[in-house]
Design a protein around this nucleic acid. Sequence first.
DNA 1: CATGAATGAGAGTTCATTCAT
DNA 2: TATGAATGAACTCTCATTCAT
Lengths: 203, 203, 203, 203
Amino acid sequence: MDSDTIESPKVPRTERGRKTQRKLLDAAAIEFGERGFHEASISSITRRAGVALGSFYTYFDSKDAIFRALVLDMSDAVKSAARDAIADETDPLAIERAALGGFLRFASEHKEIYRIIDEAEFVDPESYRAHYETIGERIAQRLKAGAKAGVMRSDLGEVEAWALMGMNVFLGLRYAIWNRGGDPTPEDVAKAANTLLAKGIEA
Amino acid sequence: MDSDTIESPKVPRTERGRKTQRKLLDAAAIEFGERGFHEASISSITRRAGVALGSFYTYFDSKDAIFRALVLDMSDAVKSAARDAIADETDPLAIERAALGGFLRFASEHKEIYRIIDEAEFVDPESYRAHYETIGERIAQRLKAGAKAGVMRSDLGEVEAWALMGMNVFLGLRYAIWNRGGDPTPEDVAKAANTLLAKGIEA
Amino acid sequence: MDSDTIESPKVPRTERGRKTQRKLLDAAAIEFGERGFHEASISSITRRAGVALGSFYTYFDSKDAIFRALVLDMSDAVKSAARDAIADETDPLAIERAALGGFLRFASEHKEIYRIIDEAEFVDPESYRAHYETIGERIAQRLKAGAKAGVMRSDLGEVEAWALMGMNVFLGLRYAIWNRGGDPTPEDVAKAANTLLAKGIEA
Amino acid sequence: MDSDTIESPKVPRTERGRKTQRKLLDAAAIEFGERGFHEASISSITRRAGVALGSFYTYFDSKDAIFRALVLDMSDAVKSAARDAIADETDPLAIERAALGGFLRFASEHKEIYRIIDEAEFVDPESYRAHYETIGERIAQRLKAGAKAGVMRSDLGEVEAWALMGMNVFLGLRYAIWNRGGDPTPEDVAKAANTLLAKGIEA
DNA sequence: CATGAATGAGAGTTCATTCAT
DNA sequence: TATGAATGAACTCTCATTCAT
């Protein structure tokens, strides 16, 4: 996916077109989520969407292009899920806990989103990087805010933000995506992680 | 990769055969590292290895098979790098710090290993899972040992191990793989992460 | 191009329609001239013409049909250019010289016409054949007239006409279409060819 | 056919391979000759050759590549046919006559060669140009030789060579390729053209 | 007449795998 | 064991043409 710098948006000019494009995007989310990028096929996407094969190219330039569009979509979905999850919280630590809890719940319900974003590392690295950098920055801002509020240490920066993000992502992988019988609930995981985050591991 | 539970090892009977197999494995590491699993081709691997295309199947059953073998190889390499890095440490927290520092250095020097292991999530999920579960267990054991030594809290378990592992992996991604000008050194990153781990983020 | 003997002229009924058809024809001349028949696309033609894709079929039955119409157009253009070029001449040999000179100048200025007509050999052989047979006949008539005027041999016929036409066409290809630095001018070429034609090559 | 400057020859390493490549080339000559470049299909070529579709790409990089190889082949065939035809002649004018006669006979028997070379103008212009420039140069040399022998005028050059070549090519098109009932024989055509060439058309 | 979305047959090309030598 | 030719399923993408609005 040598992202040609130019991206033709292929914006539909009619309502009917908009609907078809949406159907394709939804079908692609399922297809990519289930089979992964390389196993996925355009013809299967159009079949799922109930449109002709050729129609695909009315709305997307290539398999890569729809994947890229989808990653953007999903990236937004993840971020807004996080926003929603922390909306009611005010305490900086509670915010982090809510964010993780929200993420775990969201990931459980939308495993395909997790997969698509993660596969982007190999299919469209730029999108992948952009996704995590954006989230990393948001976390860093929250840490700064926490410091300002006097609740967190004042020397927290990018490194800590990435550490926290990694924590969350791996907990998501382990307890939301791979979730198995006997595993702790999202709330329990979030609680434990929050304690770790707040106090560290020292006795 | 419908991993047929049975794996034919295809152990070479002669010294010459062993060498050819090794050449293929090395070539595959470069090829998969550079182009990723799906872009990689058997013929390119054999070309790099300097053997005939057909010879590939004397030593490996399939493209998947060599990838799997490689992931195992790399997984071992990562683990033994970690072991080496912490060999001289005794203090539980220092051990964690050394482990991360070692990992960051190792990842910087072997970015292809990082890539291959990570791509396994989509090519051979079982290997991927096995890799991280093994590492997770080792970390959990170290935490238990830390608790026993009275240096760490006694309620640390799998959740904390995965959190710690995620921290490390993402710091590796950000500061070893994506490493860019002006970034902190592996030691600085390891130090900051260690403080976070030890004390948490509370003021 | 299985030229169904029947050709639906699709004559526009309104002035507006006539204009749209003209726009399509002009756009097609540019498109076919630049990219050739097979690389050319209807959608590119309509884009150049500034009309909707679907409108194309209001005026032409198919891609072949517009090409055929175009060849007819161009064939007429070439012929009338020749007619104009020789209008003032009366001497039979001077007429041939003027015809070639005119053709060379015309071809230099309308290279796309040359290309379209020539490609017709593979796209619409019938038009191609008709084009050259018509021209061949005209030349034959001029030779007859020259004989009648006592200036040319009386045994000149179709063979000589085709020989003369081939001469002219290849000189056009070489000195008008492929024209390169240092080449003789159209007039010089026409003069040399005329001498050859008149006297032959014998010492 | 944006002829990438680099051409991988794909030279077969075994006798078997050489035979397969030859079969493909022969099948392609028929296919391109019958249906033209754009109507021709790789799968039809391999079917004619009796090999698997994929084998095509063992020997040629693309449809373009085999066409290019073919044009080279045919170009050589035409040239050596001409060489053979004039081998026994010594008189400069007789040589030209023999050349045309030979060409007409050759073209009658290998109409597909004529077609393939001519279509190259639109498929692979470089080959087309190279073909006619080479021939043009040979003719020019023969004219020079004729002048040296005192049989032809001494001022004959490239222009006359191209004029002569055009003559021959168009006579070939008309009397060898389009050949129809009642047409003069190749020998008659060659004789008439030779007279024209020698004496011109003046009375 | 104009519009642009929808259609689907068809093409070229790739490459993991097999097989004869 | 080594070689490289042979295989063919499968895939992405194009585009002339049709159709509903």
